[in-house]
């Protein structure tokens, strides 16, 4: 982040673009201006600025241990993200950040980790997965449960295969519907929880996905015996300034851009899922 002027975007060049699905791509950004800070903590986000169009908050989904660039996975959901999809390698994009809180990787050492992601929600949690794999022996069991709409909507297919095959991680994937070509699981992601093997009282759960999915996932984890204060979620709100000034992302007494996007569920349980908030 530009320390003196946090509202001023720094110029980054698009170094690589990888198509994930029909509406989602992953871009790698390299700094070329005065500000070349690319370090971040897993779970944080940047404001990406397409010149002449606008800004959008996008989670950083790269490996925090290799921080010479920012990697973002972007789904087409609005004017800014559609503009990002039209950019090519070599084009310039503005970046402000990183902002926000991070996944509790340090506090979770020695515990089992259950990561539950839905849809594009795997992107904000991928940097945590990289970090956990990097320090694999510091954690207990590692379980990744991922749900997507259809097999065609799954992101990071190669990484999922890689994590399943090489590292000491239990990876389970499910889709909401599929044709007969799909040999994997069909059903909601919550249905995978009771099939996973972990010690609930010694488990940190990290969840990212649509809020409805997170609500039902939390319910299932609590039923399994995971403690309230060991459940963490990544929230999505309409972040604008990223520095807790504008109030766009206010969530009760909290601001998602500063107090989040990663929250301990115990701290927001009274707010989460409330219609009025």
């Amino acid at each position: 982040m530009h320390v003196q002027f946090p509202m001023m975007p720094s110029p980054f060049r698009i170094h690589k673009i990888r198509k994930e699905t029909y509406d989602t791509c992953t871009i790698e950004l390299i700094p070329f201006g005065e500000n070349n800070i690319t370090s971040f903590a897993a779970g944080q986000f940047n404001m990406l600025y397409v010149f002449g169009v606008g800004e959008a908050p996008i989670s950083i989904s790269g490996n925090p241990s290799i921080s010479n660039s920012f990697i973002h996975t972007v789904r087409k959901v609005g004017s800014v993200t559609e503009a990002i999809h039209k950019l090519k390698c070599g084009d310039t994009i503005g970046v402000r950040g990183p902002f926000g809180t991070h996944w509790p990787l340090e506090e979770s050492k020695g515990k089992d980790i259950v990561i539950i992601a839905g849809g594009i929600g795997l992107a904000p949690i991928r940097s945590a997965i990289y970090q956990i794999i990097f320090e694999r022996d510091r954690y207990g069991k590692i379980i990744l449960l991922y749900g997507a709409r259809t097999p065609d909507d799954m992101i990071y297919k190669k990484e999922l295969e890689h994590w399943r095959g090489i590292f000491d991680i239990e990876v389970k994937v499910t889709v909401d519907s599929a044709s007969s070509n799909w040999r994997g699981n069909v059903g909601v992601v919550t249905s995978l929880i009771h099939k996973a093997h972990f010690e609930p009282f010694q488990t940190t759960a990290m969840i990212c996905g649509p809020e409805v999915m997170m609500r039902f996932t939390i319910k299932e984890l609590l039923n399994c015996g995971v403690k309230l204060n060991n459940i963490y979620i990544s929230m999505e709100r309409n972040m604008k300034c990223g520095i807790c000034l504008c109030g766009h992302c206010q969530f009760g007494p909290k601001f998602v851009c500063k107090d989040g996007p990663v929250f301990c569920y115990d701290h927001i349980k009274e707010l989460f899922g409330k219609r009025e908030i």
């Binding site: 509406d23 789904r75 087409k76 959901v77 609005g78 839905g118 849809g119 594009i120 749900g147 997507a148 709409r149 909507d153 909401d176 519907s177 059903g187 909601v188 919550t190 249905s191 996905g209 649509p210 409805v212 999915m213 039902f216």
Partner: peptide, 16 residues
């Protein structure tokens, strides 16, 4: 029934 309702909600779809 709960799972079916969640599937019907199409929670991962883009809803603008």
């Amino acid at each position: 029934l709960e799972a079916t309702r969640l599937q019907l909600l199409d929670i991962y779809g883009v809803h603008r």
